[in-house]
């Protein structure tokens, strides 16, 4: 088994066994979407109009859920010490861990998001496109979050600090994500322009964030 495959398989296994991954993230997403009508009121037209934004905020918060442990667990039990000097560059370790985290926590959200869109009274036709905007944007959220997770790796209660560090950086993703999702569910604005911007942000994050996170890990751990 190649080192990259071994790492991905291990992350996947741990996420599935410990929980806090797939199921809890999706349940958290469900709760967030379900409590929104209580705060906003039962006006279906308003809910449908706010639906894309609600889905995106919920996806953002559920993606960040559990991300603070991305490196911390390995830092605490000494695994990171061994991985740093292993055959995989730390940048690749970061990228693989993000990929595993994304497939176990963000992917289930994307799959169930059309159902939650229906709960918010959105029209059924554009829900696939809304899910597509989530699929295009959530990799950037995971990767940007990984930088925050790396910076707070040695802090005991780093989760909150990580959210404070990361949430401002996710604003561009949120702007273009909600713009594309709103355009998909009606309105005069074009869908493709914000969607392509979203893809560009994710691609840039894939290219740059692993280096930033690996540099942060090396620097913070002294």
């Amino acid at each position: 088994m190649t080192p990259a495959l071994a790492l991905f398989a291990r992350e996947w296994r741990i996420a599935r066994r410990i929980g806090g991954g797939a199921s809890v993230g999706a349940v958290f997403f469900l709760i967030l979407v379900a409590i929104m009508p209580f705060a906003i009121g039962p006006d279906l037209n308003m809910l449908a109009r706010l639906g894309p934004a609600i889905l995106w905020i919920a996806a953002l918060l559920s993606t960040l859920l559990g991300l603070d442990r991305l490196f911390q667990a390995d830092h605490d039990d000494g695994s990171l010490d061994v991985m740093i000097n292993g055959p995989l560059p730390l940048e690749l370790v970061t990228l693989i861990k993000c990929a595993a985290h994304w497939t176990t926590s963000a992917l289930p959200l994307i799959v169930v998001s059309p159902v939650f869109g229906l709960m918010l009274g959105m029209a059924p036709e554009p829900l696939a496109l809304v899910a597509a905007t989530l699929a295009a944007g959530t990799p950037a959220l995971t990767l940007i979050g990984a930088i925050g997770a790396a910076l707070t790796v040695s802090l005991r209660r780093g989760g909150l600090l990580m959210a404070v560090l990361v949430l401002p950086l996710t604003i561009p993703v949120l702007i273009f994500g909600v713009a594309a999702a709103s355009a998909a569910s009606g309105g005069t604005a074009p869908f493709l322009t914000p969607f392509l911007m979203l893809c560009a942000i994710s691609l840039f994050a894939v290219a740059a964030a692993p280096f930033a996170a690996a540099a942060a890990l090396r620097h913070v751990r002294e």
């Binding site: 291990r10 741990i14 066994r17 410990i18 605490d76 039990d77 000494g78 695994s79 010490d81 061994v82």
Partner: peptide, 10 residues
């Protein structure tokens, strides 16, 4: 090191 680098879930 002092830590065993083992994952309890595995």
């Amino acid at each position: 090191g002092h830590a065993d680098a083992l994952k309890g879930a595995l």
